[in-house]
């Protein structure tokens, strides 16, 4: 159920009851007042207030939440950047551009990952599986470039593993970066890859077949 029509003595009361019926928070509610109602005299001729409350579509809402959060965060971090938000199905893509992008990327994308993680938590707060949105934040094509670098690194490590006929260990990487390496070498005929160790020091080992 995402839409209810409720009548009550006052608009406030009707809205509260509608929100309770939908089981949503006030922030998620789109309220349309159909009739403001009238008090009447001595209980005679009074008219109930009527409202229609709709649950804001999760999609739009999430993209808007992401934008608001990131913009405020950037502002409070004292960075001069703009955030562009684009939504595709369950993924919200945010592109940050401007003078301050170096600050938001950080060393090896550390800050970018942190901002992305916090935005995901904020946007999906209180959601359990249903309507979960993934927020991806990029800046100056950092992620695409980093991916290229990782693929190049993967290939050169694979070549070394073959040349010396032994295991080669990568540096510890995030799950996302490891996935890039695994899939880059998946179709490689001569080597296999696996991850060893515990987060956050989990790393890839590439070994000759």
């Amino acid at each position: 159920m995402s839409r209810v029509e409720v009548s009550a003595k006052t608009v406030d009361e009707a809205v509260r009851s509608a929100i309770a019926q939908l089981g949503i928070s006030e922030a998620e509610a789109e309220i349309e007042i159909v009739d403001e109602g009238a008090k009447g005299l001595f209980g005679i001729g009074g008219k109930d207030a009527k409202v229609i409350v709709t649950k804001k579509s999760a999609g739009q809402d999430a993209a808007e939440m992401a934008r608001a959060f990131i913009e405020e965060l950037i502002d409070r971090m004292d960075l001069v950047c703009i955030a562009d938000v684009e939504e595709k199905e369950d993924v919200i893509n945010v592109t940050v551009s401007g003078k301050g992008v170096g600050g938001i990327i950080g060393r090896r994308g550390e800050t970018l990952d942190a901002v992305q993680y916090l935005t995901n938590l904020y946007v999906n707060k209180g959601k359990h599986g249903d309507g979960y949105k993934r927020v991806l934040i990029d800046s100056e094509n950092y992620r695409a470039k980093r991916e290229e670098t990782l693929v190049r690194l993967a290939n050169s490590m694979a070549a070394k593993a073959l040349k010396y006929r032994r295991e080669m260990k990568f540096e510890p990487m995030s799950a996302y970066e490891r996935r890039v390496i695994h899939s880059a070498l998946q179709s490689h005929g001569g080597v296999t890859t696996k991850s060893i160790g515990e987060e956050p020091y989990r790393k890839i080992v590439v070994s000759p077949k």
Binding site: L73, R76, M77, L79, E110, D113, V115, Y117, L118, L121
Partner: peptide
Amino acid sequence: QGKIAKAIRVVIRAAAA
């Protein structure tokens, strides 16, 4: 494993560069 705390610290530190 303190993942959120770590992300918060990274953001604060970036702002205090």
